[in-house]
Design a protein around this nucleic acid. Sequence first.
DNA 1: AAAAACAATATTGTATACAATCTTATAGAA
DNA 2: TTCTATAAGATTGTATACAATATTGTTTTT
Lengths: 234, 234
Amino acid sequence: MSKEASKSDASIRASSPNLDVYRQLFDSILEQRLAPNTKLNEQDLAQVFGVSRTLVRQALQRLGAEQVVVMHKNRGAFVAAPDAVLAQQILDARELIEMAVINLACGKLSLQSVNNLQMMIELEQEALDQGDTGTALRRSGEFHLRLAEAAGNQSYVHILRGLISQTSLIIAMYGQGGGNNCARDEHFELLQALQNGQHEKSQNLMLHHLGHVRTGCDFKRRVNSGSLANLLAG
Amino acid sequence: MSKEASKSDASIRASSPNLDVYRQLFDSILEQRLAPNTKLNEQDLAQVFGVSRTLVRQALQRLGAEQVVVMHKNRGAFVAAPDAVLAQQILDARELIEMAVINLACGKLSLQSVNNLQMMIELEQEALDQGDTGTALRRSGEFHLRLAEAAGNQSYVHILRGLISQTSLIIAMYGQGGGNNCARDEHFELLQALQNGQHEKSQNLMLHHLGHVRTGCDFKRRVNSGSLANLLAG
DNA sequence: AAAAACAATATTGTATACAATCTTATAGAA
DNA sequence: TTCTATAAGATTGTATACAATATTGTTTTT
């Protein structure tokens, strides 16, 4: 019915149709418009986004590779729903990588990198101020990603990209809101410590920061699985 | 019913058209039938494998996600050719993950896991004896993967899977042959140390083992890019 | 009434057809 | 000759059509 409307929405940044479908799906998952365990019917999604199943499938496969959705042969794709155990394992992995990034970056950031990162912090704050938590979450992730880039190991960047996606999903599933307000100051402090070459302090700040993700989650919480209908509201 | 059951049992390995294309492409790259930088023409591959471009594209996208091939928008897919710098970064990342696996697994392997791993070693040795270095390389990778599974962090497993793919590509590009013969004994020794809970020894063995990958490579070597025609020989 | 078997439907998997883009070869002008 | 413009061909991007499989609902049997 509102096929036309959703299509024009999509073409606001219509640079690359396939990437667009991927990103919209991704965002929809992170912002809980698509709840964990939701079945992702290809045809329905195709109509919602105004594209063919081909592009939907591409996006789903990519999300599958990132483990943001799980795919069952001949049965389709579902929004991933990592249990508490897996969530902790993912956060462990992220901690491992982020600490390695810290060790590479501490005291070695170029001025350009610092400025770049500073800008990312501003953008994240901006989203937070506007109450756009979805965007804020994505920008926070981008800060960490840019930091890894600045650290200079491309492999870490690639790995971290996946882990951040999954972390975002975990926060979406188990997060309780409140805990993320301090994120901005933490990013800022971390950047300072890195710039000053304060190795141990940088490590502790990163650990503390990632620890907030854990403490900000209630792993007992049971998330109800929604339906595709929620997507139309967005 | 029983037919279905046996089929799903078998699907752990392969034998789904799309997975098959992926695996064949992957193996072809690792065994240098498809040299680095080779352009992967979709139509040609489709004809070689006797499937439609659809399946070829799926496989290419998956390989792209694993960074075994690189994709250029509107220009197609090419076999990845990590330069020396990136190769070192990838090996650094792998070292990081493998060491984390060691720390989890040391002294905590179930008897079943140990037996499982022992079997993997045998299989790898078998391939080596037959001079099938491609298979041996893959089995070696599978050993490391199973070890990560036994260690109990699924996220490490997923990350390591990608890193092993890339490591294999690096070995295929820069490897000089000789260095990998000791791999079997090293896997065996490592397993023993892990089983006995010898923490430091396990760490050192793993570091030594991965170090062999580096020393077994000549990063000055320049690899000539081949063409798809080589595939027909396999 | 409950369970099993079957038919009807819906959904995913794969192949083909069409559109958009890039590459290459050719022709013309400086 | 060399450079540019352009047109023809080849290749990738996307949509649609068809095949295989799973799901659902009905009927039949116990």
